[in-house]
Simulated assay, not measured.
Amino acid sequence: MVKKLTRRWQLSRVRSGDGSALAEYRRWQLFSRSLFFLDLEPHVYAVDVRYLADAKTRKQHEDAVGKSPAALYRDGVQVFRSNLPAAFPVPGGVIEVATSAVGLKRMHFVPDHGGERTLRPHPRSQEGLRARFGRRFPRTSAAIGAVSLVILLVALVVGLLQGAEAVTKIPVVAEHVGTFTSPVHLPQWAKITLTVAGFFSVLERALRLRYNRLIDSVTS
């Protein structure tokens, strides 16, 4: 029920596009733009996400200043635009688009009959370069993915232990449940290292669209 209401809300925010042509992806847009494609015969759809909205874009999106605007193109022509998170209607389903603090967390085609699949990234985008690396070096790619997951799990456990210790230091809580002392106390350099490693781990997973609400929000 909640998912249906969320989908309906996202669809209600979609606006008609201005008919402009899809701009070519430039290398200098590597950290400010994501571009994905979906082949639905006889058309090719593209979703263009701009992380840094300029003044003109912000004016067009007055109800969501600071959020990343996205646009849907059909055969290179803009047909819809929306603030994020977005759900763009396409034949046979919708394209769900959402971002996290470090990148994308949703770029999926969700058919009406169920299931979903990830859109194809532009080969020169961050996501496209990561996907190409995964195809060329599958074992190394899998190892990097595993390390990223382990780092985030460690950060999650450490964060939960420290959070529990902080909560039980509150007099009212301590009076009813007692106090808890975390068995893990990291020196400052280790905390900084774990935070930095966690950030890059979240970024690496975002490039593969592997977002998990619990794990990937640890350092976001």
Score class of each variant (00 low, 15 high):
residue 85 P to W: 13
residue 203 L to P: 01
residue 97 V to W: 00
residue 100 S to V: 03
residue 146 A to G: 12
residue 150 V to F: 04
residue 139 R to F: 11
residue 102 V to T: 08
residue 97 V to E: 04
residue 43 H to M: 09
residue 173 V to H: 01
residue 95 I to R: 00
residue 58 R to Y: 05
residue 141 S to W: 11
residue 5 L to T: 09
residue 19 G to S: 10
residue 115 G to L: 04
residue 194 L to V: 10
residue 113 H to C: 12
residue 25 Y to R: 02
residue 126 Q to Y: 15
residue 171 P to Y: 00
residue 80 F to S: 06
residue 73 Y to W: 04
residue 24 E to V: 11
residue 177 V to Y: 05
residue 53 A to P: 04
residue 190 A to I: 09
residue 33 R to L: 03
residue 176 H to N: 06
residue 40 L to S: 07
residue 140 T to K: 11
residue 59 K to E: 14
residue 139 R to H: 11
residue 179 T to D: 02
residue 55 A to N: 01
residue 106 R to F: 05
residue 77 V to L: 13
residue 28 W to V: 06
residue 211 Y to P: 03
residue 68 S to R: 10
residue 185 H to W: 14
residue 193 T to G: 15
residue 145 G to T: 02
residue 124 R to K: 08
residue 124 R to D: 13
residue 20 S to V: 05
residue 41 E to M: 02
residue 38 L to E: 01
residue 182 S to N: 04
residue 73 Y to R: 04
residue 30 L to D: 09
residue 78 Q to F: 00
residue 162 Q to R: 09
residue 14 V to I: 00
residue 153 L to R: 15
residue 69 P to E: 10
residue 87 A to L: 03
residue 88 F to A: 00
residue 74 R to S: 03
residue 56 K to V: 13
residue 164 A to M: 02
residue 31 F to G: 09
residue 75 D to Q: 02
residue 15 R to K: 13
residue 115 G to C: 11
residue 33 R to H: 00
residue 217 S to V: 10
residue 179 T to H: 08
residue 180 F to T: 03
residue 219 T to S: 14
residue 162 Q to V: 06
residue 129 L to N: 13
residue 178 G to Q: 13
residue 74 R to H: 08
residue 17 G to L: 02
residue 140 T to P: 13
residue 114 G to S: 03
residue 3 K to D: 11
residue 27 R to C: 13
residue 171 P to R: 01
residue 136 R to E: 14
residue 55 A to E: 04
residue 19 G to Y: 12
residue 9 W to K: 12
residue 48 D to S: 06
residue 138 P to C: 04
residue 134 G to S: 07
residue 208 R to T: 12
residue 44 V to P: 11
residue 142 A to G: 09
residue 74 R to W: 05
residue 185 H to G: 10
residue 18 D to A: 06
residue 76 G to W: 10
residue 136 R to S: 02
residue 186 L to E: 05
residue 97 V to R: 01
residue 11 L to E: 04
residue 134 G to A: 03
residue 24 E to S: 09
residue 172 V to Y: 01
residue 33 R to C: 01
residue 127 E to C: 14
residue 104 L to A: 01
residue 216 D to P: 02
residue 106 R to L: 07
residue 94 V to K: 02
residue 184 V to C: 09
residue 196 V to T: 07
residue 69 P to S: 09
residue 106 R to Y: 03
residue 190 A to R: 10
residue 110 V to E: 13
residue 64 A to L: 14
residue 54 D to Y: 00
residue 52 L to T: 15
